[in-house]
Design a protein around this nucleic acid. Structure first.
Lengths: 99, 99
DNA sequence: AATATATTTAGACGTTTGGCTAAATATCCC
DNA sequence: GGGATATTTAGCCAAACGTCTAAATATATT
């Protein structure tokens, strides 16, 4: 999993809201977009960022694409989050962010 | 606490590494900077972003400024993080990210 | 096959970000 | 006070970001 992409995905408030919406159950792109005053293409971009971070998955059903939380990765994301503040040296993390 | 600033602060890998360093105990600006191949002024900028998010606090001791984790806010940050994926509607969050 | 609907891709544009150097500020020590 | 050290502030620049519109793609309907 790409640490960096997870945190970047979470940096945008719209994307966090998308995640909260999806936490209640799967929704298609149009249903999600309705909740925002943002153009379809821009929403699509947000979906792709969340997909790149592996936080959501999409499945096509006819004309629509239904998105849902990738729950296993959400678990991992929480671990990552804790690691940011953890006293132990986490090799995986240290390596990723080494200069 | 400014939700948005916390997540933006965490979006940068160097800043996450600063937090991990500080999780082991307080350090002054110079000690932290030594760990990075980034100029002093750029490091100072990172400190100010972390301070703005209230994730760290600085105290002056002579010529040096010692930074440490703002542990209470770190707790809050974890809550925020969980809320991103929570099924319940969190009013505080929803308001912040409303379009 | 033609049309309508849902979504993504491509490309442009203004803003924000993270880096730099140079200069300013604060403290210490002689 | 004057010089050295630690850190921040100011201003610049290139790259990344979030948004948009227009065009492309995929599926459904007639």
């Amino acid at each position: 999993m790409a640490i960096d992409e997870v945190f970047k995905a979470l940096a945008d408030p719209s994307r966090r809201r998308i995640l909260r919406l999806l936490s209640k159950g799967e929704l298609n792109a149009g249903q999600i977009s309705q909740e925002f005053q943002i153009s379809g293409p821009s929403m699509s971009h947000h979906f792709s960022v969340l997909k790149a971070a592996d936080l959501i998955v999409g499945r096509r059903d006819g004309q629509q694409i239904f998105y849902s939380l990738n729950t296993t990765v959400v678990q991992d994301a929480m671990t990552l989050f804790f690691d940011v503040f953890s006293k132990e040296t986490i090799e995986e993390n240290s390596r990723d962010t080494k200069d």
